[in-house]
Design a protein around this nucleic acid. Structure first.
Lengths: 239, 239
DNA sequence: CCCTTCCATGACCAATATGAACGCAACAGT
DNA sequence: ACTGTTGCGTTCATATTGGTCATGGAAGGG
């Protein structure tokens, strides 16, 4: 099977380049193009389709200068473009998730995400495609059975089981991330300890992991007696 | 949460009546209307939306006298109608499945299907909605985390019906479910072990299955030395 | 009556938050 | 400038649970 042709729609040049580089590193995917706003995205999609080499998957940022990501998805459908989309967004509102699903978004990635998360979601999608390409145990020539379809859907929405470094637990990491997202300013490890009811060592270990992953930034806090305290700040994605 | 308003689109009168009867029998769903072809389906959807009581879910037959189901879905998007759809079809072609997913079909039912299959798919969808309505384990007010979204997508996945995973028995699962429903707060695997007189391994296995299925939520309990203990909480449907 | 299949169990190893102890860097006096 | 104080960073052993594997017993089919 040939590679899945992907279009990156992202207004931040740095993020767009990063996503494009990610795509290149993944087996089974080919970068078809890149668009900084909704209008050019739709134009590119139409051109590729007209050229007989349609884009099959769109990495769709929700916050764009001219159109909302949902609008782009809607116009794609209206124009008869049947590309799947994966939403990349900082918007955490769940009602948007639902609308996105209704317009054919197959995956939903909340920024900032690690490369591992990104690769995992794309791998799920590729597996979904493979399931549809070669139905498994059914009678030959009978088409797809209900269980074939179920299995394909299952691989599409399978929860990610990403390997985390030794000593870290997924649920704890979620707690820390949720707390950090709430904070507008910077917080210290001790404050996380107090707020989440965990020990200082644990809080600091997870904050340190998030800092290494680039999810939070780390600075030193001076002015008080004692060793300078590290403070951590959630990296709010642009716009 | 009020019931989910459902529109049945089906040209066969007998099948349409059967589906409508199914909907009535299910908790959490209300029949909003029924349409025998694509044009009237779109008209009904528009009317309901204009009346401020939009249809939230469409049971969409693919083979209709005037329009194909995919066309209906496409026109719905073009008209700005954000109802989810479940495809009901005898068409077994997998490429149609993919196009259906791209246009926002959340489930795909191949005719003929049993009432159990039908109920299972709708229950999955209801759970998906519920997950989005009340993000579970995070800090209150934190919005959705990636894992919240993942879990919601996972509920949309198929497999609660046929393949109860190897090693699980229905009777034991019922016992655990009954016990969990009675608990107001969170319980640990050890507490379930003591209360039901089963081994810790067994209790944990069933709780874990319920957590994966989204029926119970799982959080970690901090504060004491030792590995953190998982506690499980029954997800009460917000009636 | 025997054989197969399936599930609960107990025992083992692995995993992970905690508390204490130690070290380090900046502030504040002398 | 030097030294003491202070508070956090860092490391390590410990406690306690999670996860897995092979075993035993019960239920069902031949």
């Amino acid at each position: 099977m040939s590679d899945i042709r992907v279009l990156v729609v992202e207004d931040e040049p740095i993020a767009a380049a990063a996503h494009a580089a990610y795509i290149d590193r993944l087996d089974g995917f080919t970068l078809a193009g890149s668009a900084p706003d909704g209008q050019s995205a739709l134009r590119l999609l139409t051109e590729f389709a007209a050229a007989g080499r349609p884009v099959e998957l769109v990495l769709l940022d929700m916050n764009l200068p001219d159109l909302h990501g949902l609008d782009i998805a809607r116009r794609m459908r209206a124009a008869g473009l049947f590309a799947d989309s994966i939403a990349l967004t900082a918007v955490r509102e769940l009602n948007i998730v639902r609308s996105a699903v209704a317009t054919g978004v197959v995956q939903y990635l909340i920024k900032p995400f690690t490369y591992a998360t990104f690769a995992d979601k794309l791998a799920s999608y590729r597996q979904f495609r493979q399931q549809l390409a070669s139905p498994g145990t059914g009678v030959p020539g009978a088409g797809a059975s209900q269980s074939d379809v179920d299995q394909a859907f299952a691989s599409l929405r399978a929860p990610s089981e990403l390997p985390l470094p030794k000593g870290l637990a997924v649920s704890t990491l979620d707690s820390v991330q949720d707390f950090m997202k709430l904070q507008t300013g910077a917080v210290s490890a001790s404050e996380v300890m107090g707020a989440l009811g965990m020990s200082r060592v644990t809080a600091r270990r997870y904050l340190e992991y998030l800092a290494d992953a680039g999810t939070v930034s780390r600075t030193a806090r001076y002015g008080a007696p004692g060793r300078p305290e590290n403070e951590y700040r959630w990296n709010r994605p642009p716009s």
